[in-house]
Design a protein around this nucleic acid. Structure first.
Lengths: 216, 216
DNA sequence: TAGATTGTTAATCGATTAACAATC
DNA sequence: TAGATTGTTAATCGATTAACAATC
């Protein structure tokens, strides 16, 4: 049984794959925007991103993109394949829990639309914050979480609140039917098996820089 | 020639090491805060973070922490060793370039102080934004970048501006003497050899979630 | 055709895990 | 002492890179 000709995959993509695919995606979109022509070789991509060209070819093969010997890849095709592989065509709705500065920044971040992500509600437990406007949205009380999730059929909860309240908010989000947690809280959030969790620890990012600054 | 008894290292830490060390650091700080007692075994840490216990021991050995057979590690010592290895005791000053919502959120993020990071200035090219208050700071014109860097002896530039202007801002920051760039702009920023660059692509984080949501 | 570039198999490298002796 | 836990060497695993035949 051979893989389907439209790019069926035997193996799921690993985190590192997804990350590199995003780099290709961004690069090729800029490339297209500059109208440099429709074709690009794996070695050119590799050079621009400081990778090995074989790696680029393997990554693209993994999502079913075929290049042409002597020509390279068609940028348009690659972009479309990544778009499809990562599911950017399938709209996802998110609630942001935590209406502070970071929550506000994320809720109103214009870049997510390109990837199919829409923030449909911002919630906060603090009565002070309720009613504040963030872009088109108004901060709602955390009590309305289940309601907001159901109302908009949200699948993602973005956690932008202090470490102490993150796990509690996560539990409520899971109970409300959320399928993915994207946490910016500086703590470890856990969830039952079916729910995907991704941590975005700002301080971990800084730690890497701090370490390298120290070593000179 | 054997390594110095105070934890000298032969090999630099890799990115994955630094990331795990931060997990240990956060975990053990909570652990200490709960006053659960001063000792913890590698297998307990591993269990809580869903890792292999050998990996924990190797990571700790790499920064020169010694455990005691039959007892485990002294939480206090581990925390101190990570603090030292990652350089959190050495104060770092950063300028934030981009005074929008994200820049504001990062400039006023209270969590960085623990790691030695202080934001000393926020700058923006947009005259509209200049003069806005962000925590204790007032947004300054981008023209004053070199001045702000010199004035505060800042080493880090945090980029929170649109993709189009990121590289230009990065170049100016490098010219002003910045040694590390921490970019939240959705683009690839490059810098000369001696300057460390770290990209924090929000959309890449989401891409991973989107991919897993798609696969169910 | 000749030559550039892909696609894929084999080799290498590094990171993780397993096994186990050393230690208190 | 016996037993739990570390520290380290060896084995495994997966990811990256090198080599090269296939292709247009």
């Amino acid at each position: 049984m051979k893989p389907s000709p439209t790019g069926g995959r035997r193996h799921p993509l690993r985190r590192a794959h997804v990350e590199r695919l995003m780099h290709y995606y961004h690069l090729l979109q800029e490339f297209r925007a500059q109208g440099v022509g429709g074709k690009i070789s794996s070695s050119r991509i590799a050079e621009l991103l400081d990778l090995d060209d074989t790696l680029v070819r393997k990554d693209l093969a993994a999502i079913g993109v075929r290049g042409c010997p002597r020509v390279g890849y068609i940028a348009e095709e690659v972009v479309a394949a990544i778009h499809k592989a990562l599911g950017f065509g399938e709209p996802r709705r998110a609630v942001v829990i935590g209406g502070g500065r970071l929550g506000g920044a994320i809720a109103s971040y214009p870049g997510f639309a390109k990837y199919g992500l829409t923030v449909v509600a911002v919630l906060d437990a603090d009565p002070e914050k309720i009613g504040h406007r963030i872009g088109d949205l108004v901060v709602r009380p955390l009590d309305e979480l289940a309601e907001a999730v159901a109302e908009h059929r949200a699948e993602v909860a973005i956690l932008t609140l202090p470490a102490e309240s993150a796990q509690d908010a996560a539990d409520k989000a899971v109970a409300a039917g959320i399928r993915a947690l994207w946490s910016f809280a500086p703590t470890q959030v856990s969830a039952p098996p079916g729910v995907r969790v991704r941590h975005e620890h700002l301080s971990t990012g800084f730690a890497e820089l701090a370490y390298h600054l120290k070593r000179g």
